[in-house]
């Protein structure tokens, strides 16, 4: 009987460990997007500033995904022969938004205003990594609480370690 309990416990614990390991270290950090959009070409080679497309970053808690009109603003003329651009055009003509997959996802209980960070002079690359050199967006930071707090501590943010500064 005792043996059985030990086996069962071992099974359950190891199952949990396996699950955790998968979630923690093997989750998809660079999901495939509906359009093979390259930040490297836009932000790197052509040096388009981040906030040209992510227009709300300085005004709101969300930075904003570029609206399709913004894409079409340039791509009505530029590189219209590329198959990827033609996909964008197809969405535009169907009047459908592009269903991007979220890479940097924060849980519901976190209050993270982009605005405060941008206005405090935190570079986008600080958290999002070297985007101008990424073809496909890859999550480089863990976005976990310890990671947030490290930065808040280093920068000596006022009340930066209080729970309700970031939780809601």
């Amino acid at each position: 009987m005792k043996k059985l309990i030990v086996y069962a416990l071992t099974g359950v614990i190891s199952l949990a460990i396996g699950y955790w390991v998968q979630q923690q270290f093997f989750s998809d950090r660079a999901p495939v997007q509906p359009i093979n959009f390259s930040h490297k070409i836009h932000a790197g080679v052509n040096k388009i500033p981040c906030q040209y497309c992510h227009i709300y970053a300085e005004r709101s808690r969300v930075s904003g995904v570029p609206n399709v009109q913004r894409c079409m603003g340039c791509h009505k003329i530029i590189k219209t022969d590329s198959p990827e651009i033609q996909k964008v055009t197809a969405y535009w003509e169907k009047k459908e938004p592009i269903p991007w997959t979220k890479v940097h996802n924060l849980p519901d209980y976190v209050y993270f205003p982009h605005k405060r960070h941008v206005r405090a002079g935190v570079e986008c690359t600080n958290c999002h990594g070297d985007v101008p050199n990424m073809d496909r967006i890859t999550k480089v930071s863990s976005l976990q609480m310890g990671w947030c707090l490290t930065c808040h501590t280093q920068r000596n943010v006022k009340n930066g370690r209080d729970c309700w500064t970031c939780h809601k």
């Binding site: 209980y109 009340n159 209080d162 729970c163 309700w164 939780h167």
Partner: peptide, 15 residues
């Protein structure tokens, strides 16, 4: 549940 620097008694749901 703790007191923050605003004099509020706050409850941290995650904890």
């Amino acid at each position: 549940t703790y007191h923050n620097q605003d004099g509020l008694n706050v409850q941290v749901y995650n904890r």
